[in-house]
Amino acid sequence: MFEARLVQSSILKKVLEAIKELLNEATFDCSDSGIQLQAMDNSHVSLVSLNLRSDGFDKYRCDRNLSMGINLASMSKIMKCAGNDDVLTMKAQDNADLVTFMFESQNQEKVMDYEMKLMNLDQEHLGIPETDYSCVIKLPSQEFARIVRDLSQFGESVVISCTKEGIKFSAGGDIGNANIKLAQTSNVDKDEDAVTIEMQEPVSLTFACRYLNSFAKATPLSPQVQLSMSADVPLVVEYKIGDIGHIRYYLAPKIED
């Protein structure tokens, strides 16, 4: 028996918005410790890694490990039926081929049950090596989304360079060049407005704008985003999900020919 209750169903709605552009389907691995999802996009350029800890749910029970293969477009249709303030409960029997999403209004006067068929998906787990990153940058997530959106107008790629002085995002193409520099903030009223840089060594890497824009769909999940970079390894873009977990995106850099 698997049962997970979330008073704020909006969290799962936002998670789905944050992954459905990159992935058509994915396996939700449910265990005692929580719900995990790890999947690459079709082109194997990016990877989504989602972790929702069991202690972050309002109620959580998972008697046996369960892998739920889910079509994300179908799940998205169901999640759109939930009001933001509805209470969500996901339920599945052991070895089930169905998962039930139950939405209850706050006053419990309306109860909705949606059953969704599960899929058998080939599991391809990637071993992600532990990496000490040369640069770890934290910045407001809306700022990151804005920068990526703005630079996408100039070209397909964005160069992210990090030095002690700050971070520079650059793009260039037919219409010209664009550079956006962010310095580390010295004092801000709210932590979520801060730009912080932890740098061991300067790094400069090139990434496809298309994927960065897809990652930015996670912006509603967290006021801050963390970028971790080292030379010649994938970028990690991490959004915390309240007290329940995180979503991490990995993106392979573009390589100079």
Partner: peptide
């Protein structure tokens, strides 16, 4: 010019 790298060359598939 640049070419897009793939994650397979960085991470091991198990």
């Amino acid at each position: 010019t640049t070419t897009q790298g793939r994650l397979d060359s960085f991470f091991k598939i198990s």
